[in-house]
């Protein structure tokens, strides 16, 4: 029993601490990454508007 309960305690503590760290890490960095992705998507959208025939071409 001791072995199993030690293992499960490690799993639960690692999950909670790791998740907290991940939320902090992602929340900060992901917003700037989102801005970069949206900039790239905006360029894509502009290109699509300039060449609407591309979207109408059957493939």
């Amino acid at each position: 029993m001791q072995m199993w309960m030690t293992l499960w305690t490690i799993v639960l503590v690692a999950a909670a601490v790791g998740f907290l760290g991940l939320i902090l890490g992602i929340s900060v960095g992901a917003v700037s990454e989102l801005k970069e992705s949206l900039e790239e998507l905006r360029a894509d959208t502009m290109e699509s508007k300039e060449h609407p025939e591309e979207l109408d071409r059957p493939t």
Partner: peptide
């Protein structure tokens, strides 16, 4: 407003970085 083509619609134009 950010959906220009099929790739944008289905896979966000493959623009995702690691954290996002």
């Amino acid at each position: 407003r950010y959906v220009g083509n099929l790739s944008d619609y289905l896979v966000a134009g493959r623009t995702l970085r690691l954290r996002l």
